[in-house]
């Protein structure tokens, strides 16, 4: 293990984290909802016996999220989206992320930011699980196979 100092930029990451934390707070303070992206997207695909406000707030939040790249690029150049994964692995990765987040009831936002912010043991277990699996998967694909 070595540290990649040339890519290391803790200040922008800290600042970005602070801003997305504020987004999380706005949603819970004014709408009473957790900013868990996988939960919001998953629930959007449910139509049976859903309460009145089921879809509206989710659509509004996701509209904000998806349009953030457009609004950001009005003021600043949008940073590169560098996806090196090949087509087949990309499909596999997407399915794993979709299925896994619904099975584990959350992702990096719901468990990692909201859950840990609420000091939830359940979210701590989930976060350790996906971080650990992430480290091991990277090790396998970047160092073991290659």
């Amino acid at each position: 293990m070595s540290i990649n100092w040339s890519e290391f930029n803790p200040i922008t990451s800290l600042l970005g984290g602070g801003i997305l934390g504020i987004g999380t707070i706005i949603l819970i303070l004014f709408r009473g909802r957790i900013a868990g992206i996988s939960g919001i997207v998953g629930a959007l695909m449910q139509f049976k016996n859903t309460p009145k406000d089921h879809h509206l707030w989710r659509i509004l939040f996701l509209l904000g999220l998806v349009s953030s790249s457009l609004i950001y690029s009005l003021f600043l150049p949008f940073p590169s989206v560098n996806i090196t994964t090949d087509f087949t692995s990309l499909i596999l990765a997407g399915v794993l992320v979709g299925f896994g987040t619904r099975m584990g009831s959350g992702c990096t936002s719901g468990h990692g930011i909201c859950g840990l912010g609420r000091l939830s043991p359940r979210s701590l277990v989930a976060t350790l699980g996906f971080m650990g699996a992430g480290f091991i998967t990277c090790y396998i694909f970047l160092h073991l196979i290659n």
Binding site: I83, T84, T85, S89, L90, L92, A93, G94, V95, L96, V97, F99, G100, T101, R102, M103, G104, S105, C107, T108, H111, V125, A126, T127, G129, F130, M131, G132, A133, G134, F135, I136, T137, C138, F141
Partner: peptide, 13 residues
């Protein structure tokens, strides 16, 4: 679920 999610996360970033 979290383990499956983590492996997919790392695969595509």
């Amino acid at each position: 679920g979290s383990l499956l999610f983590g492996s997919g996360w790392a695969l595509a970033g």
